[in-house]
Nucleic acid binder design. Structure first.
Length: 829
RNA sequence: GCGAGAGUGGCGGAACUGGUAGACGCACUGGACUUAGGAUCCAGCCCUGCUGGCAGGAUGGGGGUUCAAUUCCCCCCUCUCGCACCA
């Protein structure tokens, strides 16, 4: 055995050994308890970054630990391989996205292997493999059949830089989530998945996922945005038609003095037709539509509107009120029309002030004597209160009135209570090449025709010439586009949009359970064993996006009979970012640390150890080269402990806990068992790897302490051997290479992975004497040592007899004495 | 604006159900070994005072509950994240 720890000479050896022995490959085994551990799979961008290293190190500790605890652990890895960077890189480097992607996968796989992660590589796949995305096309067809996939013309988020459409979830603060450029609104024909059909269930289950972080659930709840309200009908003054609004404040209906509708509202052109203001209105609409979404969202856009020239009738007052087009009304939410109540809505209040519209107070605060006067209002009163100026409804509370007014209108067919969601359908069309083709054919005679299942897959052609603009080459790829209509046999044209790559990541976790299955997407006999994922680990950035889509998709697949679970991920751990010099590591900031260089300099174990030790997983991790060196130093200390004492350790027989020991060895024996308990709890229950590591460091320090003053004791080496072996087993999930090497150097021939996780004995945790803190009036004054089994009375007596304590009490009689067993005594005088 | 989370030494962070605040590591200081060490080992290391041992003050600030508060409650300040004209 080398005297010096040198990771280079051991890491590769053990990686090859694990692979040769197929130690990470698993099969379903109904006789064993399963555990499905998954980390978010990476996009093959070229190289692994520190965020990945951290994510996968956390997962690997859990996987290795639970294997030693006897569970049948599925721990797979694959590639989220479709996506735009491949296209952009291919254009730049004059290569093909497929080649670029698969080359990156090869390199990144080698990086992951160098880090020693315990993946079952036999299950690996990439989502751009035809054998994967073909099943996604089948899902699309089944969803199409059920009306869950549909096409419509809609105003959508368009990113000019990426030359494609984005889903609402993919627009962050009005900018593209990928390239950060402003997004504009564009009307296009688009395919949607009807996620809104599942809004209620998606929301419902956010209250049934105790293993998820509260804030992720809150974010999803906000995103779904359920609100209870009413749909109310305002007939047009002209008599031919009506405007329906959604409102959560039906109680304020008597105060609705005008109407605001969205520029995109279908009635707008009709309402201004033939009126004197027609051309002004049309101009206004054009301007409003062109406004960037980023401005609209950032509240930069001034609130503006224009009178359409038409009126509608307030259904309870019977008064005619003007209809305005307003740039802040969103067509996508509710009905695209808002009843404006300036006295009780701040936005309407400002709008009314600007255009000289009437303000009518209909709610007064509960404790007010008189209703406030409209002309004295400086701001809208938006809270609930008591109704005034509202005919028969006056005197009701807001809550009562919401129901009563809606019911009153419902009788006339002019209203109903309803539930409104903020969530909108998931737009999945992407005008890009490197994605899964949408299996649809357009025929002049038959219209939109789904590709028959027997004709799947629709293979993405590889013989394409990429366009420098980034626009998809598919529409101009004649052999792909031109096809035959499956219904009439006449000429047909293929859909050239591809699917959003979030579709692939919405079911990959299920496919890992049966990766080679080729007669269907999922083999329920195997998938049923492994699903759901017991623990999912990844970045918080997917709190809404990927994690919401996946939940939706699982419910759809369940309803199709492909899955028998309601939710994909039982427990979720969202790990923090890797930070350097106070900022997230990124190329543009120039603060990236390359994992390869770190592995080269310190070895994989050190890199893993540092990632786990520097902070708890859910917090951000500040990268520190000195911290990395500290981690390396600790591994060296462990190494030397074994290397320098190997002969003596090998000769000793592990202490069995039976014979009596001198105090200092009993201390070590106890420390060993305390450490086993602490590490087991920290890794297994709390995921606090940093404190688990700290505990092992304490044990190692303790061992060095004992070696400082060699007592020449016969019992030393047996007890030491117990401590050393425990140490090796406890760190093995964290730093597997050095653990494997040390384990074998202790004379074992079987992998450390196959050892049972060490157990602590509770009797070994007990010490004969305990230290008790003595306080007087809550201030620490002395420490006493008492037998562990001393009664409260005895402890109290000993404390009161303590000379220091007597001094502090100085003759006074204690008013009260609190005794906390094994902890402290507090004397109140 | 709304929602969530967080504020502890020079730094990263401990303290699981209220019970010795600062485990463990980094940095720093001193010493040992050494031709030398940026290797290793040992010791010190929150602040203030006489400086041995103590005493007092410290967990963003203020108040409260309690024998006892980093931990529970109220108010305020700061930071981070998410949502943001949602009717």
């Amino acid at each position: 055995m080398e005297w010096k720890y040198s990771p280079k000479s051991i890491e590769k050896k053990w990686q090859e050994y694990w692979e040769r022995e197929r130690l990470f490959e698993v099969r379903e085994d109904s006789g064993r308890e399963k555990y499905y551990l998954l980390e978010m799979f990476p996009y093959p961008s070229g190289r692994i970054h520190m965020g990945h290293v951290r994510n996968y190190s956390i997962g690997d500790v859990v996987a290795r630990h639970l294997r030693m605890r006897g569970l049948n652990v599925l721990h797979p890895m694959g590639w989220d391989a479709f996506g735009m960077p491949a296209e952009n890189a291919a254009i730049k480097a004059k290569t093909h996205p497929a080649k670029w992607t698969y080359d990156n996968i090869d390199y990144m796989r080698s990086q992951l292997k160098k880090l020693g992660f315990s993946y079952d590589w036999s299950r690996e796949f990439a989502t751009c493999d035809v054998s994967y995305y073909r099943w996604e096309q089948l899902f699309f067809l089944l969803m199409y059949r059920k009306g869950l996939a549909y096409k419509r013309s809609a105003y959508v988020n368009w990113c000019n830089t990426c030359q494609t459409v984005l889903a609402n979830e993919q627009v962050e603060g009005g900018a593209c989530w990928r390239c950060d450029q402003p997004v504009i609104q564009k009307q296009m024909e688009q395919w949607f998945f009807k996620i809104t059909d599942y809004a209620e269930e998606l929301l419902d289950y956010t209250y049934k996922l105790p293993g998820w972080p509260e804030r992720v659930l809150t974010m999803q709840q906000n995103w779904i945005g359920k609100s209870f309200g009413s749909r109310l009908v305002f007939p047009l003054e002209s008599g031919d038609g009506e405007i329906t609004v959604f409102t959560t404040r039906a109680d304020t209906l008597f105060g609705a003095t005008f109407m605001s509708i969205a520029p995109e509202h279908p009635l707008v052109t009709k309402l201004c037709r033939g009126k004197s203001q027609e051309s002004d209105v049309l101009q206004f609409i054009e301007r409003a539509k062109q406004a960037k979404r980023s401005d609209r969202e950032a509240d930069l856009l001034e609130k503006e509107g224009i009178f359409t020239g038409s009126h509608c009738i307030n259904p309870v007052t019977g008064l005619k009120i003007p209809v305005y087009v307003a740039n802040f009304v969103l067509m996508e939410y509710g009905t695209g029309a808002v009843m404006a109540v300036p006295a009780h809505d701040q936005r309407d209040f400002e709008f009314a002030g600007k255009y000289g519209l009437p303000v009518k107070v209909v709610i007064q605060p509960v404790d007010a004597v008189d209703p406030p006067k409209a002309e004295e209002l400086t701001a809208a009163f938006e809270e609930d209160g008591v109704l005034v100026n509202s005919d028969a409804f006056s005197g009701m509370t807001s809550g009562e009135a919401r129901d009563a007014i809606t019911a009153f209108l419902a009788e006339k067919g002019l209203g109903e209570t309803t539930v409104q969601y903020r969530l909108r359908d998931w737009g999945i069309s992407r005008q890009r090449y490197w994605g899964a083709p949408i299996p649809i054919i357009y025929c002049d005679r038959c219209g939109t025709v789904p590709v028959p299942e027997k004709d799947l897959p629709v293979v993405l052609p590889t013989d394409v010439a990429l366009l420098a603009s980034g626009a998809s080459p598919l529409p101009v790829h004649e052999p792909f586009v031109n096809t035959v209509c499956p219904e009439c046999g006449g000429p047909g044209r293929r859909e050239t949009d591809t699917m959003d790559t979030f579709v692939e990541s919405s079911w990959y976790f299920a496919r890992f359970a049966c990766p080679g299955h080729d007669t269907g997407p999922l083999d329920l006999s195997r998938v049923g064993y492994w699903m759901p994922v017991d623990q999912y680990i990844g970045g918080i950035e997917h709190a809404v996006l990927h994690l919401l889509y996946s939940r939706f998709f699982v419910k759809v697949l369940r309803d199709m009979g492909y899955l028998d679970v309601d939710e994909p991920f039982l427990n979720l751990l969202t790990q923090g970012m890797v930070i350097k010099d106070g900022a997230k590591m990124s190329k543009s900031k120039g603060n990236v640390v390359d994992p390869d260089e770190m592995i080269e300099a310190y070895g994989a174990d050190t890199v893993r150890l540092f990632c786990l030790f520097a902070s708890p997983p859910e917090k951000d991790l500040e990268w520190s080269e000195q911290g990395v060196e500290g981690s390396f130093r600790f591994l060296s200390r462990m190494w030397r402990l074994v290397a320098e004492n190997r002969e003596k350790l090998l000769k000793a027989v592990k202490y069995d806990g039976e014979r009596r020991l001198p105090t200092h060895l009993l201390d070590l024996h106890r420390k060993t068992h305390q450490t086993i308990k602490k590490v087991t709890d920290d890794i297994g229950e709390r995921f606090h790897f940093n404190t688990a590591i700290a505990a092992v460091m304490e044990l190692v320090n303790h061992m060095y302490q004992i070696l400082e003053s060699p007592p020449g004791d016969d019992e030393l080496w047996p007890v030491f051997r117990e401590a050393v072996e425990s140490m090796i087993l406890l760190v093995s999930p964290i730093v597997p290479h050095i653990a494997e090497e040390l384990w074998h150097s202790m004379g074992y021939t079987e992998s450390v992975l196959l050892q049972p996780w060490p157990k602590w004995r509770s009797e070994a945790l007990q010490s004969e004497e305990v230290l008790i803190v003595v306080q007087v009036n809550g201030r620490l004054r002395s420490r006493i040592t008492v037998p562990a089994d001393a009664s409260a009375d005895q402890v109290q007596r000993t404390a009161l007899e303590d000379p220091r304590i007597r001094e502090f009490i100085s003759g006074k009689t204690p008013r009260k004495v609190v005794v906390v067993p094994n902890r402290l005594v507090n004397i109140v005088v």
